[in-house]
Design a protein around this nucleic acid. Sequence first.
RNA 1: GGCGCGAUGGCCGAGUGGUUAGGCAGGGGACUGCAAAUCCUCUCACUCCGGUUCAAUUCCGGAUCGCGCCUCCA
Length: 469
Amino acid sequence: MKVFNTYSRQVEDFQPIEAGQVRMYTCGPTVYNYAHIGNFRAYMFEDILRRQLRAEGYAVKQVMNLTDVDDKTIRGSRAAGVSLQAFTARFKQAFFEDLKRLNIEPAELYPAATDHIPEMIVLIEKLLAAGHAYRSEDGSIYYRVKTFEGYGRLAHLDMGGLKAEARVSQDEYDKENVGDFALWKAWDDADGEVVWDSPWGRGRPGWHIECSAMSIKHLGESFDIHTGGIDNIFPHHENEIAQSEGATGCHPFVRYWMHCGYLVVDGSKMSKSLGNFHTLRDLFERGYTGRDVRYVLLSAHYRQALNFTFAALDGARSALARVDEFRGRLAETAGAAPVTGAGAAPAWVRAPLAAFRAAMNEDLNTPEALAALFALVADGNRALSQGGVSAGEAAAALQALRDMDRVLGVLEAPEPVPDAEALRLLDARTQARAARNWAEADRIRNALAASGWDVRDGPEGAKLKPRRA
RNA sequence: GGCGCGAUGGCCGAGUGGUUAGGCAGGGGACUGCAAAUCCUCUCACUCCGGUUCAAUUCCGGAUCGCGCCUCCA
């Protein structure tokens, strides 16, 4: 399997530290609001990555952090007049609900920042002892960036050329250098009751330190993959490297850094003022499903900017309906036929499956993988129409779809079964048609449509299909 | 100013030094009592200007346009 490593800016062969076992850390949500679809692009990318790794036979241990203490969560909880914990609990729950609706596999572990304050303090003490950090007058602790050789390497930034401009906020006036970043923030009024004791006085952790502390604790001082959106490259991931390697002396902290591109909406960055800001919940209210959204997120390569539009969402729905239709045809042909060995699969099943796997192993090329899926659909439909498909072959094709869906997670969908009343009406219509009573037949067809069923007349009689929006 | 990304047919979106990406939409056909759905099938492309090459959408240079990062946004 090949993956693009941000650190080297190259596609590399993936080799885990421990054979057969992948340890990966994925930067999770800051739980101060409902996540938007741009956020979910990252979680989707990570889901596809872990699914493909598993499909290739690796055991995966994925750790995704929950940032439940930072400026935004503190501000939000104070505005809402509730405790930080109560405030973030609500959005943690919403986050997991959303993941489920997108059919994103759960990570093995979801550590929360507030549960790892002692580990962060230990890490900061190590950095202080190593001379990588210093205490400022107000009791905050900063990372002394110039002591870490190679700082800026991940982001390809030359820190020497950094302009000392006015982006330094006022509460950071006592840093030695503008590039230095906070490991520990001394308490101030805005923090309210959000405070922990530390060897340097009361305060709270900086943002970056949590990921170093939690990844080291749960994955070790050196692990395989670390992911996030490209906006995390700098400063967050750059700082993580400096903190982790600075504290442990272990290099490399991470072997493969992987980042997904932005999601834009109608060609523009998502923003509330443009009215193109969408949470997952907004889309559900408009009648779209997690499956529709998931398909759209799969339709572009993860490193490319993805243009999210409602036209794409509608297109996703149509495309998935075609796959559903195909699976239905296969199931009828397969009947109860057993899935035999791979050798029994016809070429029109084997070739797309091989192409699918090759595409996914080439740095998760999901658009090409979807093309392989549709090659299977088209070739299979053609074969079915020509009547030359055996039950065993159809079963093999169904198995191929399941194999693909192990990675895509978007194909299988429960189909509602017609109720007794609908079946009775269908039967009545069949009799009306036999009597050439077209008016009555059409009346029943309309009645069925009103109750959510489409009637499909075919060579083998009429069938009911759930009506699509 | 520094670093980096992108420009593909109506829309979305892969890829390749010479041979079909794919999806959606649209046209045609099959099927049907009529429909719908479905299936089959077809049209439409590689921002511009140079260069390398037998051959460039693909490589190199430049231009134009769009976008991102440069201290806490996935």
